[in-house]
Amino acid sequence: MAKLTADFGACQGYANCVVAADDVYDIDDDGIVVLLKEHIEESDRARVEEAARSCPVNALQVVDG
């Protein structure tokens, strides 16, 4: 399993993560990222990491655990 983290203060509402993986990331009415899952399977890690990397302000991480 891998764990998803977000720096909610850094998020600027680009929503690139939602475009890349809308089953994992969403955005609330204030334009701040919402994590729809806390953990993901290792098999899904590559796809979600790509979504996290698409964040222009580096607010998203996928970490072990």
Partner: peptide
């Protein structure tokens, strides 16, 4: 599922609603 403008990064859901508006605040 979404369309993202290449200029400043605004994005829209496929029903047209604004999704991402960078630095809105």
């Amino acid at each position: 599922s979404n369309f993202r403008c290449p200029y400043h990064g605004w994005s829209y859901r496929n029903d047209g609603r604004i999704l991402g508006l960078p630095f809105h605040q």
